[in-house]
Design a protein around this nucleic acid. Structure first.
Length: 467
DNA sequence: GGAACTCGCCAC
DNA sequence: AAACGTGGCGAGTTCC
């Protein structure tokens, strides 16, 4: 039996979802206000110290002289003028409106020690002003109740606000620790976070059914990112277990090539992203003995030069071929689906997601391809969230408190942990694909658990039971 | 003094 | 030929 969800089903999902998310909002989470205040003061002092040091440098002296009483170290407008007009540095990149960029990627390409301090200040301010400040502002008697909206996003995903619970630092360890240290479970409880692994890639596969991708998703020993890393860096004996260096290149490939390609990016951006964010290789000629480590005592540039890739331009040309192979051979069925999907939209003026949601209006090609995947992937999380709430409410002390697109955050009582973990696994990996049989790839979830009474930065990998 | 804008940056 | 999808939010800036 093959039952496609209709617009009625989509409508019901939204309504159930709104009620369930409202319950999570009402539940809320504990926030350590005293800690936030302490940390804010600490960060303010730290920023002041860096600013004091910066004031002694020629760059800032000149900056002050030019801007007089308007001088503001947080003004990127002023910084751009100093760098690109006064000092006549050629902007490595420009913004949409044509001004020289002053973002992290750009500043780190300019060889001025002061800019490191400026970036450091930016990072600390971000943590203080966007997160700690917001936590204190939005909390009520030590409780935080972030909003989760279902009516704001074009793809029928969710959004969160006041404070936004969906963008609290995670990758940057320092920022992560400072921000998540503020968030606590109920007394005697513990926080657990469960996320679908590679959900959007899996949901995309439900639409395009590319055989190569299906194999990657069904064979646990296969490794798409590893295969791409081996191809991009011309490595015959690729082994991420054996070589941490290979593991690093795999991560770079995932973030600089595979995912951006799935979102509709192209090779030249990928090549630049690789070089500036990961490989630290220049946009000109590559010198021997530079770039990340490779197994043995060599560096990546040595290896690439030996393979005939001796400069950025060589690398970009190389990436062009990789891209052509990626869509023209490796995932050619995926490519064909993209073409047909866009063509159908152009004829009809709308498309329907597998979850019954209809998108219409004028959309660019990349939007037409991305929306159905992004939306339906989130709906998998939402469906699971609703089911979990139905099971837990009234019967368990554990409760759902938040959601981040493909992840759910619960506040569990330790006595219920094992049972709740089993329920989560069952709902997400068994019940969901049974309810929506357009899901034709296996789904999997990973979990992180915090200690009892431990804050959200203390999470450690937690193995969920099989079902 | 607020609205609307740009830019930068955090998450998925 | 074109060229990264979805948000929220803070600070600076410009305009009314």
């Amino acid at each position: 039996m093959n039952i496609q969800p209709t617009q009625i089903d989509a409508y019901k999902l939204i309504h159930d979802g709104v009620l369930t998310l409202a319950r999570a909002e009402q539940a809320g989470m504990r926030i350590d206000v005293e800690y936030c205040e302490r940390k804010k003061t600490h960060l303010t002092r730290k920023i002041a110290r860096i600013e004091a040091n910066l004031s002694k440098t020629d760059l800032v002296k000149q900056w002050k002289k030019i801007n007089r009483q308007n001088f503001n170290m947080d003004s990127n407008d002023q910084l751009g003028k100093i760098l690109y007009d006064v000092m006549e540095i050629k902007p490595p990149k420009t913004t949409k409106s044509g001004k020289g960029s002053t973002d992290e990627d750009t500043l780190s390409q300019i060889d001025l020690p002061e800019l490191k301090d400026i970036l450091r200040i930016r990072k600390l301010r971000k943590v203080r002003d966007t997160y700690l400040d917001a936590f204190v502002r939005e909390q009520v008697n030590g409780w935080l109740h972030p909003f989760f909206n279902l009516h704001t996003v074009r793809t029928f995903r969710s959004s969160s606000s006041d404070p936004n619970f969906q963008n609290i630092p995670k990758r940057d360890k320092e920022a992560m620790n400072i921000c998540r240290r503020a968030i606590f479970p109920r007394k005697g409880h513990q926080l657990i976070e469960v996320d679908f692994s590679g959900l959007e890639v899996s949901i995309a596969a439900c639409y395009h059914k590319d055989p190569t991708m299906m194999k990657y998703l069904k064979d646990p020993h296969s490794d798409m990112h590893g295969d791409m890393a081996a191809q991009i860096f011309c490595i015959d004996d690729f082994d991420k277990q054996k070589h941490p260096e290979h593991k690093f290149l795999r991560g770079a490939t995932k973030n600089s090539f595979v995912f951006p390609q799935f979102y509709g990016d192209y090779y030249a951006n990928n090549a630049q992203g690789f070089c500036s964010s990961w490989l630290h290789l220049p946009l000109g000629r590559w010198k021997p003995g530079t770039g990340p480590d490779m197994p043995g005592k060599t560096k990546l540039s040595d290896h690439m030069i030996s393979k005939g890739i001796k400069s950025y331009q060589d690398f970009e040309d190389h990436m062009k071929k990789i891209e052509k192979d990626f869509w023209g051979r490796r995932f050619y069925v995926y490519q064909k689906w993209k073409d047909l999907w866009v063509e159908a939209y152009q004829k009809k003026g709308f498309f329907d997601m597998y979850t019954g949601f209809r998108c219409s209006g004028i959309m660019r090609k990349n939007e037409v391809i991305n929306y159905p995947v992004q939306g339906a992937a989130f709906h998998c999380l939402l469906w699971s969230f609703i089911q979990l709430d139905k099971i837990l409410v009234g019967r368990y002390r554990s409760r759902l408190i938040g959601q981040i697109h493909d992840a759910v955050i619960l506040d569990v009582h330790p006595d219920e942990l094992e049972e709740v973990a089993y329920i989560i696994k069952k709902v997400t990996c068994r019940d969901l694909p049974e309810a929506w049989n357009w899901i034709c790839v296996p789904l999997d979830v990973d979990a992180d658990l915090c200690p009892v009474d431990g804050s959200w930065n203390m999470k450690e990998s937690y193995k969920l039971p099989g079902v």
